[in-house]
Amino acid sequence: MFDTEFFNLGYLDRLSYQNTFIHRIDPRIKLISSLMFIVAVVSFPKYAVTGLLPFFIFPVLFLTLGDIPFRFILKKILFVSPFAVFIGIFNPLLDSQPALNFLGFTVSRGWMSFVSIMLKFSLTISAALLLIATTSFPGICFAMQKLRIPKAFVAQLLFLYRYLFVLMEEAMKIVRARDMRSFNKRGKGIKHFVPLIGVLFIRTVDRAERVYNAMLARGFNGKIYSTKAYALTMSDILFIFASVGLILLFRVVNLTTLIGRWTTG
């Protein structure tokens, strides 16, 4: 369990360092357009279904152009879906007014809003996952700093990221050692969890001390300078115009019903 999550995280992290067209887009541009995308999707009213469909072109483009394996992202989306499903499933139970009629079937408004929640859920979650799968975490931090997120917080994110994998590996070793010697449910209870976390905590504090020493050894004086300079390229600018344009178009015009009306006359 821990092992799989650890390796999944590492995999996602490695994906973010690929070199494709999508990966090369400036992180600021990707962060801004992802946020716009999410707000546009979420701003659709409760029962909107058809209007949301064109938005799926974005994850599809990110998946294909960014060389991101679809099944991997799908699995991650399914993994976090329970809360949204749990809350959303009450809608069809509680709202059974008919919404539309199709070939003799009546679909209730509750089901419409449930489908709407699920569509929004897959769109927004895949937006977050695809953002990190196509942009390195330090890149996102850089973008956040440019968007005026406080420096102390950005530095904190970068530090966390740097030691994430180190500490997860340490935790994984401890968990393996525990699981190797615990059988059935014995050994996995709170009684053993507490000292395990305690030991990990103390090791962490000691590590912080060593890191601090290493920082001092290199002249640390409370400031962390950043050297990264990204310059916007032509393709960045085209990307932002194209994505903002499409997002607005999809939000304002319901392409799905429009196309449907054309074809059905």
């Binding site: 999550e5 530090f159 966390l160 030691y163 500490l167 449910k185 990990l200 905590f201 504090v205 962390i224």
Partner: peptide
């Protein structure tokens, strides 16, 4: 104090890692 910079960073990673460790809750399984 400057010492907090690495301490906070590493403790953040600690919380992240620690949240991934599960334990069984007594009587519920």
């Amino acid at each position: 104090d400057e010492k907090m910079v690495p301490l906070m960073g590493v403790l953040g990673a600690f919380i992240f890692a620690a949240q991934m460790i599960n334990f069984t809750i007594p009587a519920t399984g």
